[in-house]
Design a binder for these strands. Structure first.
Lengths: 262, 262
DNA sequence: GAGTGGTCTAGACCACTTG
DNA sequence: AAGTGGTCTAGACCACTCT
């Protein structure tokens, strides 16, 4: 067994300037890229590699940590190190906020996930009145207080997204928007009923490594970045009526946009 | 000196379940978050932390590697470990392909960078005829051969983006598009002169950790992901006339989009 | 119980940067 | 020359998983 799984790997080049742990990482990466280890496959264990290469255990662990940082492998305590499985991806289409999508009873997330054959869940819903951060306040035109709606989205039991919506409190207080369940079509439908006909959304996209809190909330594997999306909704009078701050597991999303060539 | 810089750090909790290297990483992270170490500041050296915490050097190095993976710090051989400086960010606006921007002599990248006070450069330009990958071929409607235009973009000497444009060969061969410098307004202006009036662009955005090749090309620090953007340009007849495959240093970009609320 | 990865020690030598 | 991080060794004990 041991020899068999490590047998796809070559030997070290002692004349090379390249550090031993990098050479080992290179060989493992190449074996993964060439499909000799496939998604979900177990790599040779640390002790197998120690024997195969004749190096110390820390050197082998060092090469694993290189591959983990690249998001290529995940380790599972007591089981082994595995080629990271690529989860199914959720595609956010550029028409996802079209008004026609709001005319149904379920949320966009639920409808879309079910259409894709996944089991959607929303948990950790929390609605509070707060003082906004400087950034949020600036985006919303400077309200003193806001309504914050937090929730986490899961697909097939896996957390994929954590989102907070902020609305000026004078606009949202004592409306269905302040209720845990704002009703069919979500808060955008309610905003329009309150006379704030939506005109357009601005979205800002960044990518970065997650904070420890985000790693816990989204149960992120090592080497998985997050996509940070900040969306501002404007009504037809040009007023910013909502800011939605969203953090997504980057390996679970593709964002799609359409740009006019005008 | 030594004691001074480590003096902002606390003590370990020997009763905690949390691993020692994580406790050290937590304390350093907190000190950074609270501004006790600012961008570009040098953290206490490994030997200072070894002394301060009374642990072995590998334990200290392990905590540094946690922070590196989070993109919080960068190490420089022979100098020290530093709080990662946040470089200026380039904002890609949603109107960046508006036709009016094509009517100037310089490229969008150059104009925009100079307006922002940065020194733009383009290097590594390479124009070749190739067989497309399956994915690129599918996006372009299945041409057997394509023209590929590769180049790297730099701001103030720092590489920020690597891009490859693919065009169906039957469309681009023997046109200015196949020249290293396609002329004012770039290849989009040439496409329109060739009768392919542009209608819209589709963009797909992903984020992931970089490959070793991308780390070299973009000189990426540890803990910096890339944004992978694939743009397809369509003419008014619905034909895909170009696919641009772009990899960007995630810490150098914010992407902005506007969505209609239609 | 055997095998796996997780943590930690106490050294060693090297390469790079700075004074 | 002194200080820094980079690489590597050879152990040790622990926590977790599987059978």
């Amino acid at each position: 067994m041991a020899a068999a799984s490590a047998s796809v790997l070559g030997a070290l080049d002692p004349t090379s300037d390249r550090a031993v742990f990098r050479q080992i990482a290179d060989q493992l990466r190449e074996a993964i890229d060439k499909g000799r280890f496939k998604e979900g496959d177990k790599l040779p264990s640390e002790s197998e590699l120690v024997e195969h290469y004749g190096v110390s255990r820390m050197t082998v662990r060092n090469s694993f940590s290189v591959l983990q940082g690249e998001g290529l492998v995940v380790s599972e305590h007591g089981k082994g190190v595995f080629v990271r499985p690529r989860p199914p991806v959720r595609r956010l289409a550029s028409d996802r906020f079209a008004r026609r999508h709001r005319e149904q009873g379920k949320s966009a997330f639920t409808v879309e996930a079910e259409a894709a054959g996944s089991r959607p869940e929303v948990d950790g819903l929390e609605v509070k009145e707060e003082r906004p951060t400087q950034d949020i306040a600036a985006r919303l035109g400077g309200p003193r207080r806001v309504l914050a709606r937090r929730r986490r989205y899961l697909l097939d039991g896996r957390p994929v997204e954590y989102a907070v919506s902020y609305l000026p409190l004078d606009l949202a207080r004592d409306t269905p928007i302040a209720q845990p369940n704002p009703g069919p079509g979500g808060i955008y439908a309610r905003l329009e009923e309150l006379g704030h006909r939506l005109d357009h959304f601005d979205e800002e996209i960044r990518a970065r490594m997650p904070s420890p809190h985000e790693v816990r909330t989204l149960r992120l594997a090592a080497g998985v970045p997050v996509i940070h999306l900040i969306r501002t909704a404007y009504d037809t009078e040009g007023r910013a009526v909502e800011v939605c701050d969203t953090v997504m597991a980057a390996d679970a999303y593709v964002l799609a946009y359409q740009l006019p060539a005008t």
